[in-house]
Design a protein around this nucleic acid. Structure first.
Length: 109
DNA sequence: GCGCTTATCGCAC
DNA sequence: GTGCGATAAGCGC
């Protein structure tokens, strides 16, 4: 298996690995993702996403807050990026309610 | 509702 | 090589 993202740190690599593990139609929370990589801070996960150089290549739109609420996208916490995130999720089959997931059952724990 | 804590990344010196 | 600051969150009070 080749290193898909050699420019990323081990931390980001783990985050993306777990992210790829999320099936289409479902999403994962920052905390759950952080816990999977043995990290107690969800903030660090968001940090990796925000600064990830492969933003459009990484399905960061599948990562949501513990409440299932979208937080930001492409380094933007405004509706600009959020709107796109919503569209992507809907396209993937994730039902959303405004800027929040319609059902927390869609979240991977 | 508001504020503080925590971990990682980015950039500067 | 080392240090400082900022952040796409979470939890507590």
């Amino acid at each position: 298996m080749k290193v898909k993202y050699p420019k990323l740190t081990d931390f980001q690599r783990k985050v993306f690995a777990e992210l790829e593990r999320v099936p289409v139609g479902k999403v994962i929370t920052y905390k759950a993702l952080a816990a999977r990589i043995n990290c107690g801070s969800a903030r660090a996960v968001g940090q990796a996403m925000r600064r990830n150089p492969y933003a459009p290549e990484i399905p960061c739109h599948r990562v949501v807050a513990s409440d299932g609420a979208l937080r930001g996208y492409f380094g933007k916490t405004n509706e600009e990026g959020l709107k796109k995130k919503r569209e992507l999720l809907l396209k993937e089959g994730v039902q959303l309610d405004g800027n929040q997931v319609a059902s927390t059952s869609l979240l991977i724990r």
